[in-house]
Design a protein around this nucleic acid. Structure first.
Lengths: 347, 347
DNA sequence: ATGAAAGCGCTAACAG
DNA sequence: CTGTTAGCGCTTTCAT
């Protein structure tokens, strides 16, 4: 209930000026070792802690970064965030987390992040920005890096979506599938667009025709551009109800969606992979558990790279605008039917 | 690349004093509507945004709360955090997130949170604090609320662990099970201790004996007091390898652990629920997907309540120390074998 | 090496 | 109503 002790209290009790106290805590070289020890002792006694906000204001440096994520429920974000946080902590940076649930609130969040100056840098995760904000972010002096999305002129790190989608699709093709559909997120999402391209490319490359009616889109109104279990479940339900002719295999744009597809398939009495082969995308923790064949994203590495890049930008104010693609890797499990004696998760 | 525009720039261009500008942005009643409009127009023109840190310093109020969570990978935290964030946003508060991976770093985080004054309040999620920090937190002027744990003298919100564990266990008993084991987290965790008590109580109440060897503890070295899939998987593997005699049912202290148990059981050729019935705890999103019978925690409500309580404390500096227990609810799905025609998740 | 003083950008009390 | 001024708690010249 005591008012907190300030640098003045320390200075007075130590019999020095506040400048000296400041030098002591910031271990400046311009201080006598002896006085420093003395000041440090007083600090301990008084249990003094510098006021972080005052420091930030004076230093013009906050040692925190702001991260904005879509209102996270997709475990891909979670795993990303976990690693982002980890690397941040290792570098003594704090994290202010903004999560955006409704797209119409996005701009207000972006504006705040841009100009409130509470952070030294911003990390946009899975956030697509329009031209207007692209310009703003390019012009702003605060470093920005985008993860799982991209924008010209801004540091961006993504998975190689197209080639990964091709790999996934070709795996199905190599397994003998000729009738392949795709369940995708909403095309307002960058990854969704890219993965669709890759899917089509694979089909083309193998002289298979792309069936528009086998492209199962997920409702973006359910949030996250349809990249969630529920949206995929509903979409799949509708799809199965409406068609008699269906593909023998599906490339699903994310693991959480694959879960929804599996649920819908099960309810329709379809067996996976016998009746329907599946390959997902992400390799979230749960994928292993349900035997989902999927494209593994190096999530920890992506998080690490993004943060390291951001911190580098902050500390060296180097030029922005680099774009890096990470490679995904096919993890063959059971849902694609690749193994003869597959053991899927059954209770 | 421009240095940011300050309140002085606005004042000068508007031909007023900075006080007036301040009044305009904080919509104080003590300002002429006309001048206010004028100032606001200039603000728009200059694209001025107040410096959040400077505001906080001057106001002695940050409008942000700090939350510390165990290095989150357990989906229970994630869902909690999601709702915490949501309610915070609704109240125009920001979130600084601290996550602690190693317990030995806990104290440094708690110290910082306590005295850096970057936040108006702190929310401890699933964090058990010792006497020393308990005292510190009780003495500090900054409001604290603890979620999913408790400490005397501090606002705490938990699920009614004991009675929920009893309910879960009794469900198994009512289904006819006489040989019931429990897989638990590490006993350094408050919920683990409470749930064990409830488990034993249920056994006692029904004249069933508690078998120490059927108490399957999870390794806390894997983090989160053993409340994770991996730890449970390993523990279950060891258990199944070592015993010939095993219980016919298991109460599992969390859903993520139940997932690990299921994985181990499957690998040992055990069928669930025929060979082994299971009831979990939490009702995370995936529980439904795998047909896990479990104790549902009202996670959104808990998050909401915690934040609302914290904000109330912040805004009214009322007394702390209230303790609230929320009730869990049994959700019967398939893993307990309750339904005759159960449909478990199978591919 | 150290104390004094000038900010950092804003709010709020104080005169008018 | 509005301008001026004194902080908020710290860092950082600038003298000494």
């Amino acid at each position: 209930l005591e008012l907190s002790v300030t640098i003045y209290d320390v200075a007075k009790k130590a019999g020095v000026g506040i400048g000296t106290v400041s030098r002591a805590i910031n271990n400046s070289p311009q201080i006598n070792t002896h006085t420093k020890d003395h000041v440090l002792k007083i600090i301990k006694e008084l249990n003094y802690q510098p006021h972080a906000l005052a420091q930030s204001l004076a230093r013009k440096k906050t040692f925190t970064i702001a991260s904005v994520v879509p209102f996270f429920t997709n475990y891909f974000f979670v795993e990303l965030l976990k690693n982002v946080q980890k690397v941040l902590t290792q570098n003594n940076f704090d994290l202010i987390l903004y999560s955006v649930d409704r797209m119409d609130r996005m701009s207000s969040v972006l504006d705040r992040v841009l100009s409130e100056r509470r952070s030294d840098g911003v990390l946009l995760i899975s956030i697509g920005i329009n031209e207007e904000y692209g310009r703003k972010f390019v012009d702003t002096p605060v470093p920005v890096v985008i993860l799982d999305n991209q924008h010209a002129g801004l540091d961006s790190i993504t998975i190689a979506n197209q080639s990964a989608a091709m790999t996934a699709t070709e795996h199905l093709i190599n397994l003998g599938h000729q009738h392949i559909g795709m369940v995708n997120g909403h095309l307002s999402s960058f990854p969704a667009v890219e993965r669709l391209k890759g899917f089509k490319n694979a089909l083309n490359a193998h002289n298979l025709t792309f069936h528009e009616e086998w492209l199962i889109g997920c409702d973006a109104t359910e949030g996250e551009h349809g990249f969630n279990e529920r949206a995929a479940y509903s979409a799949m339900q509708r799809f199965l109800a409406g068609k008699t002719e269906r593909p023998s295999a599906l490339f699903v744009a994310s693991d959480v969606q694959a879960l929804g597809v599996m649920r819908a398939a099960k309810e329709s009495g379809l067996h996976i992979p016998q009746d329907l082969a599946l390959v997902g995308f992400d390799d979230i923790e749960f994928a292993k558990f349900v035997g989902l064949t999927t494209m593994h994203q190096p999530i920890p590495e992506m998080g690490r790279l993004a943060v390291e890049r951001l911190i580098e930008r902050i500390q060296t104010d180097s030029e922005g605008g680099f774009y890096q693609e990470m490679q995904a890797e096919l993890i063959v499990r059971e849902t694609c039917g690749a193994h003869k004696n597959f053991q899927v998760h059954e209770l």
